[in-house]
Computed example of a mutant assay.
Amino acid sequence: MELDEFVDGDLKTNPVFVCQTENREEEGFEVLRLLHNYLSSLYSLNETIRVLINQHTERSVEIHQRQFANSGEHSTLPYYSRRLTFLRGLRTDFQHGGFSCLAFNRKGSLGDFGGYHVVFDRDSFINDSGLRSPEGYLKYTNESNRRYPLCYVGSFQQETVQEFYNDIEDWFGTA
């Protein structure tokens, strides 16, 4: 919600980061900080769910090869896991590569204010992130999916996470 409020437009379809041109670097860092916080929270949510499933069932769920899936089922990942893979890559890049894969592209200005899209740079992600096998994080997306990571996050949160959370809540209610 905090990230959504920081941009102009719908986070899911066309978020534009607007700030005073002279403050773009400082305020841009704030957008990246909020994105990092979201991805870290998402990571913690998944780890918590994994631990609870492992504690309360006979099935084992592990994080393996950047996936969130049942042991032995890595070749047929659920939709949630496929979508999560790219976000895990972003989070890992943020932790270890210092946001190497994101840039701010100016989309316009009005007086002292500029509007920017946060754009994913695949080449920087592959070459500068320091990740082992960075291509694996891109496996389930295409250039269009990745181009605007804030849109990806908005869509993921509003649709994919909510459905996954509801399914987990239902499952725990009947387990």
Rank of each mutant, 00 (worst) to 15 (best):
V153E: 15
L90W: 12
G114R: 00
V61H: 08
Q65I: 02
K139V: 08
R147Y: 05
S133A: 10
M1Y: 10
L34G: 03
H56G: 14
Y79T: 08
E47A: 14
L42T: 09
N166C: 05
G98N: 12
R147Q: 14
D93H: 04
F68R: 03
G9M: 05
R33G: 03
G98K: 05
Q20T: 02
V31P: 11
E27S: 02
K107T: 15
S100V: 05
E22D: 10
E159M: 01
D112H: 06
F29D: 02
E30P: 00
Q157R: 15
L39D: 15
N166Y: 10
L150S: 11
H96I: 05
T57H: 05
Y137M: 08
H117P: 07
R147W: 00
F29M: 13
Q55E: 13
K139C: 11
S109Q: 10
T160F: 08
F68I: 11
V161W: 05
N105D: 14
Y152N: 08
F164P: 04
E2H: 08
R146M: 12
K12P: 11
G173R: 09
N23F: 01
F99P: 04
F125E: 11
P134L: 01
R146K: 04
Y79R: 12
G98Y: 02
F86H: 06
V51G: 03
L150Y: 07
E2S: 11
E2K: 06
V119T: 13
S71D: 10
G130E: 05
F6H: 06
E47P: 10
N166M: 13
D112P: 00
S133F: 09
L11A: 06
D8N: 14
D167H: 10
S155I: 00
R24K: 11
V16F: 08
